[in-house]
Nucleic acid binder design. Structure first.
Lengths: 137, 137
DNA sequence: CTGTATCCTTAGGGATACTG
DNA sequence: CAGTATCCCTAAGGATACAG
């Protein structure tokens, strides 16, 4: 990874500053998706080649990891790392921001209310769930 | 602007999902930059053509606005809009996230401490300052 | 000082075929 | 099922010149 600068905003951009990475993270965080074909089926219609490179770069960046699915050993399962789960706060804030300005948003109204009025609690609760599901702790 | 979907994360991506927009916002929010040449002088070395298109797209997206500088009337001054200032929360969270994982970060330590321990207060105080400086309220 | 306009190069992305 | 490998094409970006 080549850095344009050591500014913290730029550091984040080097990880997720493209049109696809954040959508994959969204699927992992909020849509319970864990497998290649599930990401592929997202409504935004990513191509296999792009999906492959994005998954790889997220893995190289330490945001996600891959391993065997414990249910079906031959199947590959993607997980968020600590570093990836730590992105939850600004993902939630981005959703809230869009909820304020996108008239056509399909964001869940209950989620937006919760995220606005009890942000810290919501983040804590999702973090706990993700830690269990993705890190096993 | 063409939307891949109406997902709120995608809505945000359509506005700032590139390698430059967030750096311009950073300069407006945290570096007191308000003029074209100041953005151009950023350490990341954006080209004039790219800077021009990014400023334009941020303006079209309703994130920034431009007007005459009140001090020197012939000079153009960029301002954050309400919608732009509302991005502050996730900008702060992104900086915090980078501070946790980027060993070479040049983020201000005092800022990170404040953002971690008193996030809401920090955001409120910066929002107030930006509202005064950029919106005049 | 604040931009366009231009030219050229490169990176990103779509489509498709193919493999373990 | 989970990916590479190609091929091709377009959009994004750098350099530079120039204009209001």
């Amino acid at each position: 990874m080549k850095f344009k600068s050591h500014c913290p905003i730029n550091y984040a951009l080097e990880h997720i500053g493209d049109k696809w990475s954040l959508l994959i993270l969204r699927d992992l965080m909020f849509k319970e998706k864990r497998h290649y074909n599930e990401f592929f089926d997202a409504e935004e219609n990513v191509s296999t080649s792009v999906l492959g490179t994005r998954l790889r770069s997220l893995e190289v960046g330490g945001i996600i990891s891959k391993g065997a699915d414990e249910v079906k050993k031959s199947r590959i399962k993607y997980s968020l790392t600590h570093k990836g789960i730590a992105m939850l706060p600004f993902m939630v804030d981005m959703i809230v921001w869009s909820g304020l300005y996108d008239d056509d948003t399909e964001a869940d109204r209950a989620f937006l209310t919760q995220a606005t009025e009890h942000r810290d609690d919501l983040i804590a609760s999702i973090t706990k769930k993700l830690s269990q599901d993705h890190l096993g702790i």
